[in-house]
Amino acid sequence: MRENSSARLPAGSTARQQRAERILDVTAELLELHGYRRVTIDDVAGRAGVGKGTVYLHWKTREALFWAVLQREALRLFDQLLVELGKDDELALPHRLMYLIFLEVTRRPLVNALLLSDPVVLGNLAGDDSVRSAQQELAENTNYLQLVAEQGILRADRTVKQAGHILVNVTRGFLDDPRSSDEDALPVEERARLLSEVLRRSLEVDTVPAAALAPLNSKVVAMFTEMADAHREQLQRSY
């Protein structure tokens, strides 16, 4: 049953938030199935059971809606990373963290598209500054690598800039492997393990100081929490 498009639920109300989440759920499904260019606001409204005007009550443009979907997916990834980081200090190490991120990204097609600037899924958003910023947060965060260096974990023959170049290009190569869909392709977990091994050998000192693990984890948690809170706050504005 189609909801009255003129229904203006109070900002911040549970009902309004639930409606926004339903619209985002539908948009995410359509983006995964058809990509940016083939999904319209009419498609979203029809599948969500709301009027077209209702969608625009939350997001003023089609691009704003699609970006909100990507932002929510990135937020969910950050939240999951924070849960895992709370279990084990060693997960803050580059090779352990990127192992975890690789597995999570392969389970989240829209985040994968975000990291790879997939033009089919992202369309015009592929070159947007917001998308570029999200990519930097997830796969080439120099602030993170600076924390790694400050704790004496980054190899002495690597600068933070060099480490960032290695991290983003190696990770992107593993994610964008055209053979990953072949029947004889390596299992996802094995690909993640190989990525982890490459990054450990390329970026980290041979013996990581045990005393550095807890401080690094604490700072990485604080960094991801700040990024997650920023995405959450922006999403809440549309609810």
Rank of each mutant, 00 (worst) to 15 (best):
V205L: 04
T207C: 05
L186S: 11
G164Q: 06
E189Q: 13
L167V: 08
A185P: 09
G152Y: 03
R193Y: 00
A149H: 04
R155M: 07
A192M: 00
Q162L: 12
K161N: 11
K161D: 15
I153G: 03
S202D: 02
V188S: 13
G164S: 10
R200T: 13
V170P: 04
R172K: 14
R200G: 06
P187D: 13
H165M: 14
V198D: 08
S202L: 10
Q162M: 07
S202H: 06
R179K: 11
E150Q: 10
D157K: 02
V188D: 09
A185Y: 02
V168R: 07
V188N: 11
R200F: 11
F174Q: 08
T159F: 01
A163P: 04
E204R: 04
E183N: 10
S181K: 14
T207E: 15
S202P: 08
K161E: 15
P178V: 13
D206L: 06
T159L: 05
R201I: 11
V188M: 12
T159H: 01
K161L: 14
F174L: 09
T171I: 07
T159A: 00
D184R: 15
L203E: 06
R193A: 10
E189L: 11
R201T: 15
P187T: 07
A156T: 14
R172A: 14
L186I: 03
L195I: 11
K161G: 10
V188G: 04
R201Q: 11
T207D: 15
F174V: 11
L195F: 06
E189K: 13
G173C: 10
K161Y: 10
I153F: 05
R193L: 07
E189V: 07
V160Q: 02
V170G: 03
D176L: 12
L167G: 05
A185C: 00
G164A: 13
G173D: 12
D206Y: 08
A156I: 03
L167A: 02
T159R: 01
L195A: 10
L167R: 04
D182T: 04
R155L: 09
I166H: 10
L154Q: 01
R179P: 02
A192L: 01
D182C: 03
R179Y: 07
T171V: 12
S181V: 03
V168T: 14
V198A: 08
D177W: 02
V168F: 04
L175Y: 09
D184A: 02
G173H: 11
F174I: 07
D182L: 05
F174G: 06
R155C: 10
K161V: 15
V170W: 02
R172F: 08
L186M: 13
E190Y: 04
S196H: 11
V188I: 14
D176I: 09
K161R: 15
N169H: 03
D176Q: 15
D206A: 12
S196V: 01
E189Y: 05
L154R: 03
D184Y: 09
V170M: 10
P178N: 07
P178A: 07
Q151M: 13
P187E: 05
R179M: 11
Q162P: 03
P187M: 13
L195W: 00
S181W: 07
L167Q: 11
R155S: 01
A185M: 07
E150A: 04
D182F: 05
D176P: 00
T171P: 06
I166D: 05
T207A: 06
I166K: 00
S181Q: 11
G164L: 02
K161H: 13
L186C: 04
R201G: 01
R191I: 01
T159W: 01
R155E: 01
